[in-house]
Structures are given as C-alpha cells and as structure tokens.
Design a protein around this nucleic acid. Structure first.
Length: 576
RNA sequence: GCGCCCGUAGCUCAGUUGGAUAGAGCACCAGACUACGAAUCUGGGGGUCGGGAGUUCGAAUCUCUCCGGGCGCGCCA
C-alpha cells in the first residue's frame, strides 16, 4: 500500500540487474513538485561503494528505471538525484485502492504481530487526574492505536504505584476525613496529607459501607485496610476520568502485588546471578553536595555497564526497596511476558531516570528488548492567552475532567498530539472553542464535514446514480485530470507512508500535521471551484464526471476519518 | 558542577531519520462570496536554522565546543 516501498523494491531490482551492489538508499517524495513526484538518491549512495560518479551510475540504470511499472519519466538531476514522474494511471490506481480500503487505508502489517507494551499515565493513585496528565494519557493511547494500525499486537498498561509512603499518606488523609465526617472537630488538615474534596466523598462512602468501625481502633489496624480501600476508590476515580477522555488501558499492574509475590526478589536475583549487583558507596553529586550527605554503603546496580552515569541504589537505608528497585522488577516482569518492544510514556520530571531504566532493561533482556521512553513536556493551560493559575497545595487544580467537560474529549485528544511530545504545549481553552483555522481540530473536521456535505448534495442532484464508494471504484476515474485533483490524489497516496513513519518513530504528531495539510489541500481545491465552476465536484448533466470526482471526495473523507480514528476523534459529518 | 531535552521568520511550530532554492499557521499588507457550506481561499514582504569548528559530493539534521532556556541529580514516588 505504501507505494514508496514498492518503488524501492523495483529500483533495487534494476540496481541488481545492471550488476551494482545492494545498498540502503532512500525513495522519497520529491521536495519540489517541479522535480517530479518521487526522488531517489540511489546513484549517490552507490557512487561511494562503486567508486564511480553518480551521474555515470544513473545513466547505467536509467533505461531500466524508465521501464518500471507506473513510471512515466525518469531524469537525472542536481548532484545525482533521479526524479520520477508517475503516470496518471498509477495515481488513479492509488485512488482506487483508497476507495477499496475505505477507513482501513493506511493500515499495514509492518509490525507482523510483534508484541508491544505501552505503559502510560501511571499516575499515583492519590487523587483525580489533573490536566497535566491529559497529554501522556492521550499520547500513549494514540500511539497504541497507531502501532495497532501498522500491525503490532499492543498491550496498553497502567502501573499503579500503590506501595510507597504516598499511599500511606493517602490512607491517613482518608481516615482524617472519615473522623471529620463522623463529627470530630479536628481543625486544619496536618501537612503531608492530601487536601481535596474527593477524599471527603470517599470518606462518606466509607461510612456508608463500614459505619464507624475504624474510629476507635489503633492506626496499625486501620491503615492497611483503609489504604486498600482508598487506592481502590482513587483508581475508580482515575479510570472514570480516563474513560471520559476515551482512554482505556486493559492491564493495570500493581506495584504492591508485584512486591508481594516476590517480583523484586526475582529481578534482583537475576541481576545478582549476572554479577550486576554489589555493595558500595556512591560519590556525592559533584557541585551540588546535599548538606546532610554521609557516605553510605548501599545495594547498587551496575548501571554504568549499560550506559548510565553512575551505579544506582536499589535499597534504602531502612532496608526497604527504592522506587527504582520496584520499577526494575516491573520491567523484568514485562520482559518475561514476552514483549518485543517496550514503550514507557513519562512526564518531564522523570527524565533523569531514563538512562537507568534503559540500562536495567538492557541488562535484564541481554540487549534484546528495546525500551523507548517518551517524555511528555508540560501543558501550559491558558484562557485567552492568560495562564490559568492552579494551586496543588490547596488541593485546587484544574482536573482533567474539568477540561474535558469544558471543551470535549475530541478537542483535548487532538490538541494533545499536535506537538511533538518533547516540547511544551500551549492549550488555550478559548482558542480550541473557536471555529476557525486557528483551531486545528475544527479545521480538519470542517474538511470532513464538507466532504459529507457535497456527497449529500450530489445524491440530491442525481437521485438515481449510485455514489457509494464501492460503485465509484468502477467510476470513470480517468475523467479526473485537473492539476488540483492530481495534487489531492498525491497527498492522499502519501498517507500510508506517513502512518508507517509515525509508527516507526513513535511520533503520532506527524499524523496531525498530515491531516492539517490534507485538509488545507482540500479547502484549496474547493475554492478553485468557486473561481471556476467547471472544477466543482457536482457537475449538473454529467453524472460520470460527478461520479469520478465524488470518488476523490470519498477518498479524502476516508483518509481524514481513518486518521481521526487513530486519534480516537469523531469525524463530524456536519459543523454547527 | 554533572546528565537529559529544547533553541528554525516578529509569535507558535513542522522539517519525511544526511539531500536539491529551509516550509506552514498566526500577525502584517493587498485581494476573492447573488455560496457544491467564505467557519474558507489567493497573492506579498519577512531567515546567518543560537554562535563557532569539524565529518563529506551534500548538514537545520551527525561529532566537538561555547551561549541561552527547561527538567533532573543517594534513603520522593
């Protein structure tokens, strides 16, 4: 389906036929349409290994290249590029392919069913998700959709950090609110506990379920059960927030459960067997020595053997595991579950942990399982250009739910992947409600709605002509030939390559840019019809031409809707 | 002090994994509606790709080094 791949195979066959060695060369869209449709650097790449000038090699191959199916012309240009122009028959065949594939155009089997684990969100279960979580949630979810669409078997996962001091604080916070709700006058909430009304709600539910049975017992007795109760309540909250956003992991892995079943011991035993754990003393960080620094002997992982800067501690001085030890065990578990690729989606504040985690995975998988860690930078929440103030300390922050309720899930989802994950993103509540080109969600959906609109109108104009995509595949598509129409077809035919590239790079934002550009091409072509009515899609009295052009409209609609489906965004059929 | 990320038009950002003359949008200027939906479109000006050096046929992209911004830096997760 990705015609660049097909052409590369054809070109490679010509290379072999003239007796040149194989090489990794590129087949790409020509940068300038004046150059042609497709360009390859094969002659320049081969010139290095063959020790002959690119031009000479190109001349050697040119007659073979011109004979490739679908190639209308091939020319040598510039420093040794070979530019191809593809035949109109070739482009019409692409269009037919789109009409045949429908919403599935662009799907492929690149991944060949390989198992990929994508872990995302993994927010601590201490409260509802805030707007900062939206980016990682959507990024992970869209990346998962994208990987599935190119043939990977994807498992979407959430790691619940339910084993540390934070969930103890959560349990104490719940107990405080519980006592409060049962009538005790407690005054201000002690520092270190979680404010926020959601725990008042949880306390009231607790009373409904358990009455006052946790009131008069010592902390050692109420803490473990209330911790479980609180984590469960918070995870319910979080899951519901995620569902509101259209995000749904299928696997929720509990750190507590992992530790309880000996996962940490197993992972560390594996590392110990391979001689990667030792007792040692770390140097203080240079130039920033903490005031309370004391040399301390710790259990360390030899991360430096796998590219990290220092060896990393696995055990705290009180004998319990560090967070890193738990994460090592968790990734060991993922490796043992047989994933070929691991992807973690983290917030920017965790970027300091990338190297050590990758070192651990490299060590535990003997270099076989790549771990790609995608860092999501901050989202600057604005309203009409003004930053929205939030105070997490006071428990007042803009929740994910607030934002989804305000602008809708489709808008949040699309906007979160309109930037590369590793650059900060401005999210302006006023702007995304605008119906203008400033608002990319609107602009893309508007293009789709226009497609739907013209299809409705056409059916009214020709009540007896079948305009379904299946019928249009056989329509006289050769009636298409206007340069604007061919531009659109070329743009459409580039979709599979865009999907493949985005999937290989784990960069879903590329799809957003593609869709914006495709929408732009479509709007532009639309307006050519304003200036020249002969270019409109619906031509009264010419059902054949209308049918051919509606084939193009259907194709645009399919690609936009298929792209939006990867984003998990509805393709609107009308704008209001 | 060290590590990672970022630095591209006045602003917000792309740049197809090293390719040809670096591209969009916003803003600014000049135009296009008795409409297949003008919520849009057409044209114009605007650049030392943070600076410098290197690698090669060729660098925004790779290496080194400075400058600037963000995040992080042994018992927080």
């Amino acid at each position: 389906m990705n015609y660049f791949n097909k052409l590369r195979d054809d070109i490679a066959a010509v290379v072999a036929a003239v007796g040149l060695p194989g090489a990794a060369f590129a087949v790409e869209p020509a940068r300038d349409p004046a150059h042609g449709d497709v360009a390859t650097n094969v002659a320049m790449i081969l010139s290095k290994v063959a020790g002959r000038p690119p031009k000479e090699l190109a001349d050697l191959m040119i007659s073979g290249l011109k004979a490739i199916d679908g190639v209308a012309s091939a020319d040598v240009a510039g420093p040794g590029f070979i530019n191809f122009r593809l035949s109109s028959g070739f482009w019409l065949a692409q269009l037919q392919q789109i009409l045949k594939s429908g919403l599935d155009y662009g799907r492929c089997d690149l991944g060949q069913g390989a198992k990929v684990n994508i872990e995302y969100v993994s927010a601590n279960p201490t409260g509802p998700l805030h707007v900062g979580h939206a980016r990682g949630s959507v990024f992970g979810d869209v990346l998962a959709n994208l990987m599935e669409s190119v043939g990977y078997h994807v498992v979407r996962e959430y790691y619940i950090n339910d084993a540390g001091a934070q969930v103890d604080a959560l349990a104490r916070s719940l107990h405080w609110r519980y006592r409060e709700a049962l009538g005790e006058a407690l005054g201000d909430l002690p520092s270190g506990l979680y404010p926020g009304d959601y725990l008042r709600d949880a306390a009231r539910e607790l009373i409904a379920n358990a009455g006052s049975r946790w009131l008069a017992v010592p902390e050692d007795d109420w803490l473990p059960p209330l911790r479980l109760y609180a984590i469960d309540a918070m995870m319910t909250l979080i899951r519901n927030d995620l569902l509101e956003l259209g995000v749904g992991q299928s696997v929720f892995s509990s750190e507590h459960a992992l530790v309880a079943r000996g996962g940490v011991d197993e992972a560390l035993a594996y590392l110990a067997e391979h001689g990667l754990i030792y007792q040692g003393v770390l140097e203080p960080p240079k130039g920033k020595k903490p005031e309370d620094w004391e040399p301390r002997e710790q259990t360390l992982f030899r991360a430096t053997q796998f590219g990290d800067d220092v060896d990393r501690p696995l055990r705290k001085s009180d004998g319990t595991w560090t967070y890193f030890a738990g994460d090592v065990a968790y990734h060991f578990d993922k490796i043992r579950r047989g994933f070929a690729v691991l992807i973690d989606v983290w917030g920017a504040d965790h970027s300091g942990y990338i190297k050590r985690m990758q070192a651990a995975v490299k060590a535990m998988s003997e270099g076989r399982v790549p771990l790609d860690i995608k860092i999501c930078q901050l989202v600057n929440l604005l309203d009409q250009g003004q930053p929205l103030k939030m105070s997490k300390r006071a428990g007042r922050f803009v929740t994910l739910r607030d934002v989804v309720d305000a602008v809708g899930k489709d808008v949040v989802r699309f906007m979160m992947v309109t930037r590369r994950n590793d650059v900060p993103l401005d999210f302006d509540l006023a702007k995304v409600r605008e119906q203008s080109k400033d608002n990319p969600v609107f602009y893309v959906q508007y293009a789709h709605a226009r497609c739907c609109s013209v299809l409705r109108n056409a059916q009214e104009a020709f009540p007896n002509v079948p305009f379904e995509p299946a019928a249009l595949g056989a329509a006289p598509l050769t009636r298409l030939g206007d340069p604007g129409e061919l531009r659109l077809i070329r743009a459409l035919a580039g979709w599979p390559r865009t999907v493949e590239g985005a999937a290989q790079a784990h960069e879903p934002h590329r799809l957003a840019f593609y869709l914006f550009e495709l929408a732009s091409e479509f709007h532009a072509h639309w307006h050519r019809g304003n200036d020249d009515p002969g270019l409109r899609f619906i031509i009264a009295g010419d059902p054949d031409l209308t049918a051919a052009r509606l084939g193009l409209v259907h194709a645009v609609r399919f690609v936009i809707a298929g792209g939006l489906r990867i984003f998990g965004v509805e393709a609107a059929t009308e704008m209001h």
